[in-house]
Write a protein that binds this DNA or RNA. Structure first.
Lengths: 223, 223, 223, 223
DNA sequence: TATGAATGAGGTTTCATTCAT
DNA sequence: TATGAATGAAACCTCATTCAT
């Protein structure tokens, strides 16, 4: 019944090879938007422009699709971009303020920002996802930050604080910013936060650098 | 007109009055643990020690149960405790370090800490919950923090920084700490953070107060 | 705990004895209104002014309640009143027009009229109800009608038609009138019928008596 | 733009197009037999030879299925066949006796006869069904009858009786005959009626035409 | 006798997954 | 490869019935 002599013309091949990616894009969007359990697999397929059955040609189950989504949107943009931060040069405070904010804004603006919300929501139902997240994001992300703090301390730019705690003080608001982008903001709660992300990130880093306390007055002061 | 014998013996009454609370406790646990959509209503009932039907005697639907959970665990422990913080006295840095960490540890230790994860996960599916959270938690929580910052600036203790941004720099890690308690930690990822919550909160607040930079005062000073 | 020295004061006794009747009234109303399956037993209890449990003190199940409803509203008003019709005297056409329409209007105006709808709806689910209806209503009702027709024929007032068929021609519209009262009319369809019941019944009987055809013309005619 | 192979083979298409009809047939049978509320949707599916889920592929809910049943079995066989009756010719009494009894026997013998019982039972629960019935059946059905009566009167064949009332005297027993076919008869009560439908219909129409009264013509006449 | 909290079987509906074409 | 009709397990919710008080 099928006379098609060329079952893989260039066009179809391109479509075919793009399918998994289109499905992953659609799945990320929907999983972040509605949660994993509340997203129907048919909806993912439809948003990717294919039918329900086709989804199952590429992913054996909805759960495997979730894992593929995490894999795809975690490994690439976060871990890879972390490396370039190490090549930075110059005074560490400037590196932190500029490079860190640029680095995170790329994450914030990318679809990967939704992965944070997704993982928070689904971690307990899929513990190996949590494990994967810890290894692929938390470890390299904090390591990047820790290296910067180390450098600053060694260079005499930073005080000798608790490096691990400081890394989290620095990064956690950035993570929550991504989370809010996909949870509260779509509900119109951005006003409550009152902050544009870029502005907040820079203000945040500057506050971490300088602290709240009034700078040592002419004569000795400060706690 | 009513000749019936006492319609509710003490025992029955006590059970009846306790039921909603027991159901809400069970529901919070499970909604936080597995997510709203993945929690079967019968499971909530069973954890509260009653049968499926009994749940529907007290809440007309699973969705209304969710709303009641949010209402119960948001209004009471978070918003109310925020008031006492205002009565504090003494140097603002100390108030921040002591009172703020105590205040938040009470939240962290209470079952209400799970509400943060729950709201992040469900906000987009139930936008009025997001609204409620903004009004009941974000607004009073940041207002408390903003008042403290104000006081510090007016007293000359704090630099004149962007108060709103600073409030978020202070609070967001505390929120994410609660979120992690219910998402990553149960998966055994607490080691990655490498920090006990109380220690981190104090270190975090001290970092915010003092900043990273070495005190470069004209004459030697600074801690 | 119960000090009541007189557990059956006159008032309570009266209530108690009235209970089954009140429950049957409420049950008839609701079964006719919503159908047996769609009526919740609690609703019956509430409309009778008692609680759910009390219903089960008087009737062992919802199904037995239905049977009691049928028994109560079938035996009494229909079968009993049929007897008096036999005592009538005078020209049979007048008896039919007057007595029959009075008799049926009493049925139509009584709550028993709803029983017709109820039985039509539930007969197949409860075949012994159908049997009971046939014995208690159809048989005596048609018998009454048959006797009247007999009398008219014997007296030379009526033509010698098929008596059984004629009885049904006479009675069926009266039955359907009762059915419509409880099915279409509450939906505002009375206008479509365009007839007040009393007027229709008299017109109907007169038509049956006189027929449609033009009365035998001066010279012989008619089919 | 669509390179997919034929999306619906003939076999699948035929099944798909037949499904709704098969489901409606099964639904009518069961709704008439057991009532709407007492019919489980799975039972409808099974009688149509499909599974529970398939039913919901074609009808969004049990209630919509009911409405589709009414629509299907009302518009087609009753209203449409009413038109042909108007094309009749010849003496009106004969038209009434022959055509009307044929017309109604077709209704009686078709599955649509059950719709009368169904509507009587469910009208109050679904008022728009009652409305639909009034518009689609009562109005055209009585209009057909009214036209016949009109013609008879204008031609001098019929006396000038109350046309609307007469139409109901004619039609109501026919309707109740259909109702009984699906309520009492399956319970074995046909004997009480003692009449085969066709015989009764003809006897009924003849009685309506001729009346009960003996022809008291000046000169001898009458059948 | 009367209550109404509690139960759980059973009904409606959804949706991940399969498979014939 | 791609489709979408079909399935049936499982979820939500209802309600007849029980029973401790």
């Amino acid at each position: 019944m099928n006379f098609d002599p060329d079952p893989l013309c260039p066009f179809r091949r391109r479509r075919k090879e793009a399918r998994p990616s289109e499905l992953l894009d659609a799945a990320l969007e929907l999983f972040v938007e509605k949660g994993f359990a509340s997203t129907r697999s048919e909806e993912v397929a439809r948003r990717a422009g294919v039918s329900k059955g086709t989804l199952y040609l590429y992913f054996p189950s909805k759960e495997e699709l979730l894992k593929a989504v995490i894999q795809r949107f975690l490994a690439d943009p976060i871990a890879s971009s972390a490396q370039e931060a190490d090549t930075a040069d110059g005074p560490t405070p400037e590196v932190m303020e500029n490079l860190l904010s640029d680095w995170w804004m790329r994450i914030y603006d990318s679809p990967a920002s939704g992965v944070f919300k997704l993982i928070i929501s689904e971690a307990r139902n899929f513990p190996d996802i949590a494990q994967f997240y810890a290894e692929q994001v938390i470890v390299p992300g904090t390591a990047l930050c820790v290296r910067l703090l180390h450098r600053g301390i060694e260079r005499g730019e930073f005080r000798a604080i608790d490096i691990d705690a400081a890394a989290h003080s620095i990064l956690m608001p950035l993570v929550l910013l991504c989370v809010h982008k996909h949870s509260l903001e779509p509900c119109g709660i951005s006003k409550s936060l009152g902050l544009d992300p870029e502005g907040f990130i820079r203000a945040h880093l500057r506050l971490i650098l300088q602290g709240l306390l009034v700078r040592s007055a002419p004569a000795g002061a400060a706690a």
